[in-house]
């Protein structure tokens, strides 16, 4: 199965929250969707799952439009971040009622997995959603995402509010479920370096546009952080893709992305360090430096 979005545009009040986004998500992969606040991550996820109509563009599952298509929607699950406030209609809903509703609407729902995860997270199912902490709300969204058994499962900030132990539990759970079922997961997260270990492909969204879609390891392998005297750095990185160059006095630093077959020019007095995914993201999206 392939979920494809083509030239997606979403406009709010004359401003494009998404501007010509095209992506193909394949079966059996774990994707990471990373971007700054307001980059359009949640908007993209909601459009992919037909919870938000696009201003332009299309979303298809194996060629069939997803919008108002029951068969296609049955293959998707968007477990969104729950923001419960006093005005939210969900505030007075109990956890068990929310999970029961999910079990009714997701056709592949796994009751045994739901019960196992509720016990694992020690979720107070009789409590109202408004009484839960941010971490507990995240656990509820994780239970829904996992137990839905949807072939394409989208999680929006699933680890928001979770402590480090709970986050590790989530990543373990994700890998376990992925290994057993081969489902496709797309996870949007701000805690990039932690998630990098489980993400096979990363999609970087910036200002409503897709900056890059790449194999995570290949992206990390292609990145170098180069520092030294400005003229040495410039010479070493000549003709290469340079981002986030910053000058301090006579020194300069820059993030460099090497294409296959490329390398830094030899014979220059520069320090070269590898970059992790988080540093790559900052280099691509911070908009600071030269």
């Amino acid at each position: 199965m392939k979920l494809t979005c083509q030239d997606i545009v979403k406009t709010y009040g004359g401003k494009n929250a998404l501007d010509g986004v095209s992506l193909t998500l394949e079966s059996g992969k774990i994707y990471g969707l990373i971007g700054r606040n307001g980059a359009g991550k949640t908007t993209l996820l909601s459009i992919l799952t037909a919870q938000n109509p696009a201003t332009a563009g299309s979303v298809t599952l194996d060629g069939a439009p997803v919008w108002e298509n029951r068969q296609a929607l049955d293959q998707l699950c968007f477990s969104r971040e729950l923001n419960i406030n006093a005005e939210s209609g969900l505030a007075s809903m109990k956890v068990k009622d929310y999970l029961r509703l999910a079990s009714v609407y997701y056709p592949h729902w796994d009751r045994a997995l739901e019960e196992r995860l509720v016990a694992l997270f020690d979720l107070p199912v009789k409590k109202k959603l408004q009484k839960l902490s941010k971490g507990m709300l995240s656990m509820v969204t994780i239970v829904v995402a996992m137990a839905s058994k949807a072939p394409f499962t989208f999680l929006d900030e699933p680890v928001a509010g979770l402590d480090v132990v709970a986050r590790e539990q989530f990543y373990q759970l994700l890998l376990e479920e992925y290994g057993q079922s081969g489902r496709t997961f797309l996870i949007s997260t701000h805690i990039i370096e932690e998630a990098a270990g489980v993400l096979e492909e990363v999609i970087i969204l910036h200002d409503g546009k897709v900056l890059t879609v790449a194999d995570t390891q290949e992206l990390v392998d292609s990145a170098r952080y180069v520092t030294g005297l400005a003229e040495e750095v410039d010479a070493a990185t000549a003709g290469l893709e340079v981002h986030h160059a910053a000058r301090t006095g006579r020194s300069k630093s820059a993030a460099v992305f090497l294409k296959p077959g490329q390398d830094l020019a030899p014979g220059h007095d520069v320090t070269v360090q590898p970059m992790n995914l988080q540093k790559i993201f900052v280099a691509l999206c911070s908009g600071e430096g030269e």
């Binding site: 919870q51 108002e68 298509n69 209609g89 969900l90 509703l101 999910a102």
Partner: peptide, 20 residues
Amino acid sequence: YSTHLLYIPLVLSMGSTRRE
């Protein structure tokens, strides 16, 4: 009254079509 605030967005969020 509360259907518009709760039940409709809830079922749509869980994969219901708008027709449904």
